[in-house]
């Protein structure tokens, strides 16, 4: 009985190890990549990388920006990732500040638009594409209530939007913080807070996920979702009755970027992946999903994407965002989070 039990445990451990450590038969280097890319992008990206870098096998660990960032930091004593690819630049800046990234400048990096290159200190990260804060506006619900579409951030403080707006909670979601930081940069600190005081009156819920606002707007659960562009575009393509509005004051944005993890055991392979990220071919792939990509020669227009996005990009200082994050979140929490009453 006892012996059988122990044998069972031993057998189980062996089985579990066997399942998990299936080695790659073709002798390629398996590169573990942490990413926040969308689920449906993973397969095309994997195929493209493996086609262009034949001796590399991509092994994804994908989660939302917050989760993957937390996970990366939780593992910092003993990093498991070789490469971080398609994660918000704000997260990578955080990693860089903590000295967790390998210094490496991909071969084609100089050909990219300057904004997409690491300019401070040792070169660690390379931008891929940018995404913007947008207002997802449900036209079907608006028509029912005879509300006209907003064109500016200020419009969202009008009384007819009372209880009809959702945005991400800045303490829960990176894109939530992105919007708050953008308002403070566009309007200046004082006017920015004053604006948010008014906006707060109209907010129904601060969601925990950055994707949720546009999804909720798309499903008619809310009329207005302050989300980001590609999520909104995607919902619209699927048939949601929404318009994507870029407010005229300009919109906050972040970019997705790639970096090599310091201490990786597969440095050579990781460098090849990083090189691929900066190629024009890779940027053409980004262009299938994003309107704004790093390579100056790639022009893209994914379906249902708002026009002239590049022009609406607000001035955004990533360094300022990172430095002031704790202060801003504390202030935000003090002003808005203690009002727990649901609406």
């Amino acid at each position: 009985m006892k012996q059988g039990w122990l044998a069972g445990v031993a057998m189980g451990l062996v089985l579990a190890m066997g399942w998990s450590s299936a080695a790659d038969a073709q002798g390629r280097t398996r590169v573990t990549v942490y990413t926040a890319l969308e689920n449906d992008q993973l397969q095309p990206f994997k195929q493209a990388i493996e086609a262009d870098v034949p001796d590399v096998e991509i092994s994804w660990v994908r989660d939302s920006t917050g989760v993957i960032t937390s996970r990366f930091l939780a593992e910092k004593e003993n990093p498991r990732a070789d490469v971080v690819l398609g994660l918000a630049a704000t997260s990578l800046l955080l990693f860089e500040k903590m000295n967790l990234l390998e210094e490496y400048k991909p071969a084609g990096a100089d050909a990219l638009k300057p904004a997409y290159r690491d300019t401070s200190g040792p070169y660690t990260w390379t931008g891929m594409d940018a995404f913007l804060a947008v207002v997802c506006f449900n036209t079907a619900e608006a028509a029912k209530e005879k509300v006209s579409a907003p064109t500016s951030w200020m419009d969202l403080t009008k009384p007819e939007f009372k209880g009809k707006i959702v945005m991400p909670h800045p303490a829960s979601s990176g894109t939530g913080y992105l919007k708050v930081a953008a308002w403070l940069q566009i309007m200046g600190e004082q006017a920015g807070w004053a604006y948010m005081d008014k906006l707060h009156e109209n907010i129904a819920v601060y969601t925990h996920s950055g994707s949720a606002p546009c999804v909720q707007a798309a499903k008619g659960e809310r009329m207005v979702g302050i989300g980001f562009d590609m999520r909104g575009a995607r919902e619209k393509t699927q048939g949601a009755p929404i318009d994507l509005i870029l407010p005229k004051e300009g919109a906050g944005w972040d970019m997705e970027a790639t970096a090599i993890v310091k201490g990786t055991k597969n440095l050579a392979a990781a460098k090849k992946v990083a090189d691929w990220v900066a190629t024009k071919k890779a940027n053409e792939l980004y262009g299938r999903y994003y309107a704004l990509v790093a390579h100056p020669d790639v022009k893209s227009a994914p379906p249902n994407y708002p026009a002239d996005a590049e022009a609406k990009m607000a001035k955004n200082d990533f360094g300022w965002m990172a430095e002031n994050r704790e202060r801003i979140l504390a202030e935000w929490t003090k002003r808005y989070d203690s009002k727990a009453a649901p609406r």
Binding site: G66, S70, L73, A74, S172, K339
Partner: peptide
């Protein structure tokens, strides 16, 4: 609470906000 809690904060979502939202372990 994450999906349906709206603005109603509870301890578990606070932990989530601290850890996942702000990486404040």
């Amino acid at each position: 609470p994450k999906v349906i809690g709206g603005q109603f904060n509870v301890l578990a979502t606070d932990a989530y906000k601290q850890i996942v939202g702000q990486q404040n372990f």
